[in-house]
Amino acid sequence: MRKNILRLLGENARISFREIAERLNISENEAMEIVGEMEGEGIIKGYKVIIDEKAVADNVVRAIIQVKVRPEREGGFNNIAKRLSRFPEVSSLYLVSGGYDLQLEVQGETLHEVATFVSSKLATIDGVISTATHFLLKKYKESGRILHDEDEYERLKITP
């Protein structure tokens, strides 16, 4: 049941308890309880909105930054990753396999702001060996949602 509720919340975080209950054939109280439990246990960490950033006037510049770091004898990549994750400019951060170690998504209001973050904050941290910054140009899909327009396809209104 938890899985099902998480799936529904993943599709629409603003779904009502009533709809959750009706769809999964449980009572509204049960739905509320289970969600409450999952919030309490930290399984649900928050609720997020997917925004079409073009539509809001404020400029947002995003970049994906690939970072190579020198792991520490104790703690490996953890300390530096934790330290980086405290920067509000970093919107997500992953340890990845392959040619580099950490992948950051960084967000700022101008190109300059992001570039400054990289050169003055990120690159100067002890343990950071190199960075490669890729500015995002256009968003086609996010969180499982396709963001480019697809023409609505009209089905027949009545079929057998």
Binding site: R155, L156, K157, I158, T159, P160
Partner: peptide, 20 residues
């Protein structure tokens, strides 16, 4: 028969008549 009736209606109709 019913299909023709529905088609003559404006777009605001919600169809629960689609068997696919």
């Amino acid at each position: 028969d019913f299909f023709e009736l529905v088609n003559a209606m404006d777009d605001d109709v919600i169809s629960l008549g689609i068997g696919e």
